Computed example of a mutant assay.
Amino acid sequence: MTNISTYLTFNGNCEVAFNFYKSVFGGDFTHIGKFKDMPEDPKYPVSESNKEKIMHVSYPIGNTMLMGSDTGGEWSTNFKQGNNFSISVNTDNMDEADKLFNKLSEGGKVIMPMNKTFWDSYFGMLTDQFGIQWMVSFNANNRNK
């Protein structure tokens, strides 16, 4: 089954925002990780000023998942409050992820091609022909959850 979630991007205040949402809706995060927790990669160094920012947070609200992260480095130049969200699509298999990614990117712009990630997901990002940002992923470890 394919699931769709909202993914919010913040300019350094993701943790504050998600703690606020948690105070409103209750419950707890299923995951929260900071940029300092990422494996080091010389191609994508994390500055000291970004290490404490949120790399990813997952927060279930009812039957949906609200996700988010802070922006930083080269990504921060594209941040614009009000357009700081993406639609996240999680699929049951890699073929479905590729199919949806390819169709959504027709006439749009691929930001990050589908590829394996350090967080053990098959993942890609794009902006469709209408300017909507999408994240497409398949994670075999979450398939049966």
Rank of each mutant, 00 (worst) to 15 (best):
T2N: 04
T2S: 10
I4Q: 06
S5H: 01
T6D: 01
T6N: 08
Y7M: 04
T9L: 09
T9K: 06
F10E: 02
N11L: 06
N11M: 03
N11Y: 01
N13C: 06
N13V: 13
E15Y: 02
A17H: 08
N19S: 03
Y21S: 06
K22W: 12
S23R: 02
V24C: 11
G26W: 08
G27M: 03
D28R: 10
D28I: 08
H31I: 09
H31Y: 10
I32C: 13
I32E: 10
G33L: 05
K34N: 13
P39K: 12
P39E: 11
D41G: 06
D41I: 01
D41E: 07
P42L: 02
P45M: 08
S49T: 14
S49E: 15
N50A: 15
E52G: 07
E52H: 05
I54L: 13
M55K: 06
H56Y: 11
V57E: 07
V57P: 09
V57I: 15
P60L: 14
G62A: 14
G62V: 12
G62P: 05
M67C: 12
D70C: 06
G72W: 09
E74R: 12
E74K: 15
E74C: 06
E74V: 13
Q81N: 11
Q81A: 13
G82I: 11
S86A: 15
I87R: 00
S88A: 12
S88F: 14
N93L: 10
D95F: 12
D95W: 00
D95R: 10
A97N: 09
D98G: 00
F101Q: 09
N102M: 06
E106S: 05
G108K: 08
G108E: 03
K109Q: 06
M112N: 09
M112C: 07
K116L: 01
K116S: 11
T117F: 05
F118S: 01
D120W: 00
Y122P: 06
F123D: 04
G124R: 07
M125C: 09
D128K: 02
D128T: 03
Q129G: 00
F130W: 04
G131Y: 02
I132D: 00
I132S: 07
W134P: 00
S137V: 02
F138H: 15
F138D: 06
N139R: 14
A140I: 04
R143F: 04
R143W: 03
R143E: 04
